[in-house]
Each structure stands twice: as structure tokens, then as C-alpha cells.
Design a binder for these strands. Structure first.
Length: 520
RNA sequence: GGCCCCGUCGUCUAGCCAGGUUAGGACACAGGCCUUUCAAGCCUGCAGCACGGGUUCAAAUCCCGUCGGGGUCACCA
């Protein structure tokens, strides 16, 4: 039997980090078993523009390399894959349920239902609908309709016995049928609700394993009831623990950004992103730019491999030591048996660590491709295709080594691209390294003259030059080196000074030193 | 509140099913080394079986209870 799994997002306009973890596990399981991964769009309740709201979700999944074998844009033999286009299938199911007596037409008003619910609460008993307005005969139906009552279709749930669900992750879970509600499956206007639609689609799409978040565990009895009533073979169920807030066990939510900002690591992650967004002129309001949303990571220049690796380890592990996986290794190693039951909280610091690790592994060519768009968007380079630009950026990347953690970090090195007369100086650094030390100006002036005569202008020759200089001047290297760095880069920190000077080039180095000296 | 689920360092986790480990790893944090700065790297350290009973020669592991946390209780998905 071919394994078939599905991920069923609603078109909400964004891809949530918790949602993508669910999608990833479904995908990994299908790929591990040589099966198919299906994308289904749960748009039964959508008024808005579905295509527009779906686009970021499809884009995010693609970016992460979570590809689907059937679904939007790729089609498939069992489509359509949009619930909004499958109304006839749901109607057929409702008709069958009605005919078999496992569902009924109900004419209770919202108020009447609410009254029953409150009464039950007062008497401290579990609410179950009295079925007072259940139409058992065509006569009942005619009467209720004559009264002008709106009718819906409800499930006629069993009122005794227990259900045992064999969950692949949680083991056997028991429910009392008597506590399950007669849920509405079809509204008065004929539209069908999620539970009915989901069960019908899982059957039609031949889903073998329903892998989803824990929040659906308590929905499972009614879905099993529907499936059984329709004579469907049940899929296997696997309920994943939820992805929780940083430092908590509560489900991660897009809306609680203000709360998460109290977490130091989370705040640092967002702030880092905002700095990059600002430099490339990207809007960064929380609706769209937010570490709970996958887009954020693409926008600031994370590696999809790093996100996937981190997310895979949120609730799953292979053993006691393996942490770093390639996509292929994950596919080979993944199994539902090793998924945890307890919620796993999202740790921004650990995500960053994975990003750093994967970035270190990335070849320079890949980093170059990642980084060029940022320089271009920031207006620092004209064309990313120019050979001279590529060579220069590659040199910077080489010299920067591990300092560039996300692609957007390349903007920390904007000083290699700005015109000499527009180089911004860090005020504190300039004060400390150039203005305050009494000898800094004179020393720097004399070093400038040596620099002017240097040929060739390379890291090795620069290194020798400076060491000769400090020896002949009889000063400590610390007395001059910081002054040079600030004069050339405007900053107190950066990668190797000699590489920096060589990349800036002799004419610019001299111009920048002259300008700094002029401001003392 | 009812029902369901869960509980090992601050966080992600290994170990639990088949009882015997100095309870292992990673991130974070602290200190050190390296060093022209910042990173990186290397070394060291800090820190955990929620609690209480029971079973047993022996319990993180099996059983019972308590406490704590989470999910869910829609004509949302």
C-alpha cells in the first residue's frame, strides 16, 4: 500500500511556523515511505480572495523544499484539491448520512441551543442536545419549516459506549461517545463544515495517514463517526505535539508577538531582522514580518535547510547525539515512532545556532548568490551580474568567514561599497580611537605615507608594512591598528584589517585616511 | 469547569516499552585559551528525572495517587 499523507492549510495569508512543522512531518513521513504528499486547501469558510491568501503559503512551502505531489498548481488524478470546489461530494455524503439515519435535520435556533447549554452548565452536567427540534419524519420537517425555522444537518452521535483510537504517536486514547456532541455538518445555506469535508476528502484522496497537530485529537471521534457511517476504511492517525511559545508550553500564536518580545532571544531575532529589513527598505510591520511566520526567515536570508533541520528536531529525534541533518538524511531517518508526546517550545537561539551551522557548511558560491540581492536592494551595488562586483563580494565573503550568519548580514559590510566621502563614522569609535589618543593623528599620518608607497597592495604586504611601522615607530600595535580600522571602515569592529584594507584598495584607503585626519 | 493529552538541565532532547547509566548530547549561560577588534574555533564549568506513596536487593524506568502544564469543548479550520 502506498502511503499518502496530506497537509491541509486554510488560506490565511501566511505560513505559521507551527503549521510548517506539521507539513514537514507529513512530508518527511511520505518521503521516507516512498509515498505521496498531498496538499489540500481547506477553504470551506472563505469569503476573501483565496488565491491571494494562498500564495504566501505555497511560496513558503516551496522555499523550504516541501514539495507536494498533488494539489494546487500541480493538479493530480483525484482533484479538485480545493474544498470550495467539492461541494457535490459533500452533498452526496450528507444525503447518505441522512438516508441512513446517522445524521438528521435539526431546526433548533441558536438561542434555544444556548439555553440548553446553559442549563446543563448550571446543573453541572455534560451538555448534550435534547434533539427537541430533530425532524424525524417529513411531517416534522414540514412543520418546523412552516414555523420559519432555519434547518441544519447534525450528526446523530452514539450516546453510549466508548471509542478507542489507536494513535501512532499517543497510543490508545479513549473517549466516551456520550460526551460527544451532535455537530452540525451542513448549514442552512447548504454549505458544509470542516469535519464532514475533511473526512470525505481524506477518503477521496486515499489518505492513509492523517498526521496533524494535537489540537485535532479531540475532534477525532466525530470524524471517525462520520467515516464509519459512510463506510470508509479508517486512516491511521498520528497527533503531533504542538509547537509552543518560547519558554512555555502554550501553543505558538501569531497574535501574541508583544508577549514573545519579552523573551530576550525572540526579541533579538526580530530586532536582527528589522535591522536588515530597514536597510533594504522592506516593510516590517508585525502582520507580515514576524518570526512566527516563515516568510520572515526568507526575507532576512536564512537557509531553508537550517529551518527544516531545526523544525524536524522540534518533537522528533533520531538518537542521543545526531543534531545536524541534510534533507536527505532526514528523509531516510524519519519515523513516527520517534516523535515525542510533549509540546516543544520554539527556541529562537537554537534556530540561530542551526542557521549558523548550515551557513558554515554552505559553499562560497551559494553564499554569494544569497547575499547579492541584499546589496542590490540596499542600493550598494548596481548590477549583481558584474564580474568585478561578484569578485569583490566573494572576497568580502571569504574574509568575513563565519561572521555572516544570515544573508542580510552582508549589509554589516556596507562600508566597502559607499563612496569615500560618504563613509559614516561610528561616533563612539571615532572618539575613542582617533580623537582621544593624543598620538593617533600623527601616527596615522605617518602610516598613510608608508601606505602610499606600498606595492603590491595585498594583505601579506600590508601585514608586513604595519609590523615594520610599529617597530620603527617603537609603538604597540594596539596604538595604531584601531585608528586605521576606524578611519577606513568607520567602525570599531570588523574582520581582518589587512583583508579590509586590500579590499578597499589603495586610493580609497588614502582618501579615507585623509578625510578622517581632516575631522580630528 | 467537563473530557482528552502531557511532565528528564532555562530550552530541544537520549535513556522509559524489555528496572542496575558517575542520568548522555545540543543550544543558551559563565569562565578560560587563541587574538589587532568582532566573530569562529578549542577547553572548562553551571544546571535536570514535578511531588508523595507502593512493588523490588535495586525505580527516571513498573503501579497508584497528588500537583503542575497544555489541548479542546462553534452553524472556525
Amino acid at each position: 500500500m502506498t502511503v499518502r499523507t496530506r497537509f491541509a492549510p486554510s488560506p490565511t495569508g501566511y505560513l505559521h511556523i507551527g503549521g510548517v512543522r506539521t507539513a514537514l512531518f507529513c512530508w518527511l513521513f511520505a518521503r521516507n515511505r516512498g509515498g505521496r504528499f498531498i496538499l489540500r486547501i481547506d477553504d470551506t469558510d472563505q469569503q476573501r480572495n483565496v488565491d491571494e491568501a494562498l500564495e504566501p503559503i505555497l511560496h513558503g512551502l516551496r522555499w523550504l523544499g516541501i514539495d507536494w505531489d498533488e494539489g494546487p498548481e500541480v493538479g493530480g488524478p483525484l482533484g479538485p484539491y480545493y474544498q470550495s470546489q467539492r461541494a457535490d461530494r459533500y452533498q452526496a455524503a450528507v444525503d447518505k448520512l441522512l438516508a441512513d439515519g446517522t445524521a438528521y435535520r435539526d431546526y433548533a435556533t441558536t438561542e434555544e441551543l444556548q439555553a440548553e447549554r446553559e442549563a446543563a452548565q448550571r446543573e453541572k452536567r455534560t451538555f448534550v442536545y435534547s434533539r427537541r427540534f430533530m425532524a424525524e419524519t417529513p411531517e416534522d420537517q414540514a412543520r418546523f419549516e412552516a414555523e420559519g425555522r432555519p434547518g441544519v444537518v447534525r450528526l446523530k452521535m452514539p450516546r453510549e459506549g466508548t471509542l478507542v483510537i489507536d494513535d501512532l504517536i499517543r497510543g490508545q486514547v479513549e473517549f466516551d461517545w456520550a460526551r460527544e456532541q451532535d455537530h452540525v455538518i451542513q448549514r442552512a445555506d447548504g454549505s458544509c463544515l470542516y469535519h464532514l469535508a475533511s473526512v470525505v476528502d481524506d477518503h477521496d484522496f486515499e489518505i492513509t495517514h492523517v498526521i496533524r497537530a494535537e489540537e485535532h485529537l479531540s475532534n477525532t471521534p466525530r470524524q471517525i463517526f462520520i467515516a464509519r457511517s459512510l463506510g470508509y476504511e479508517l486512516p491511521a492517525y498520528a497527533h503531533l505535539p504542538c509547537v509552543a511559545e518560547p519558554g512555555s508550553k502554550t501553543k505558538l500564536s501569531k497574535r501574541k508577538l508583544a508577549k514573545y518580545l519579552k523573551n530576550r532571544d525572540f526579541a533579538a531575532l526580530l530586532e536582527h531582522g528589522q535591522k536588515i529589513a530597514a536597510a533594504i527598505g522592506l516593510e516590517s510591520e508585525p502582520e507580515t514580518f514576524n518570526p512566527v511566520i516563515v516568510d520572515f526567515y526568507e526575507q532576512v536570508g536564512y537557509l531553508p535547510e537550517a529551518i527544516v533541520n531545526y523544525l524536524a528536531l522540534l518533537g522528533w529525534s533520531l538518537d542521543d547525539k545526531t543534531e545536524h541533518f541534510t534533507r536527505q538524511q532526514l528523509v531516510e531517518a524519519f519515523s513516527l515512532e520517534r516523535v515525542n508526546k510533549a509540546p516543544a517550545s520554539f527556541d529562537p537561539a537554537k534556530l540561530s545556532a542551526f542557521q549558523q551551522h548550515h551557513m558554515q557548511q554552505a559553499p562560497i558560491e551559494q553564499k554569494l548568490a544569497m547575499v547579492l540581492p541584499y546589496l542590490q536592494k540596499a542600493g550598494l551595488i548596481e548590477s549583481p551580474d558584474s564580474e568585478a562586483t561578484r569578485r569583490k563580494v566573494a572576497e568580502i565573503l571569504q574574509a568575513a568567514g563565519d561572521r555572516i550568519k544570515v544573508a542580510g548580514d552582508v549589509l554589516d559590510y556596507a562600508y566597502f561599497f559607499v563612496p569615500d566621502d560618504q563613509l559614516p563614522y561610528g561616533e563612539k569609535a571615532f572618539e575613542k580611537r582617533l580623537r582621544k589618543p593624543a598620538e593617533a593623528g600623527e601616527l596615522l599620518g605617518r602610516f598613510r605615507d608608508r601606505l602610499a608607497a606600498l606595492e603590491p597592495f595585498e594583505p601579506e604586504t600590508l601585514d608586513r608594512l604595519l609590523h615594520d611601522f610599529v617597530e620603527s615607530e617603537n609603538v604597540e600595535i594596539g596604538q595604531i591598528i584601531h585608528a586605521i580600522r576606524v578611519a577606513i571602515t568607520g567602525k570599531a569592529v570588523g574582520f581582518g584589517l589587512f583583508e579590509s584594507l586590500a579590499i578597499v584598495g589603495k586610493p580609497s584607503c588614502l582618501a579615507r585616511i585623509d578625510r578622517a585626519l581632516g575631522q580630528l
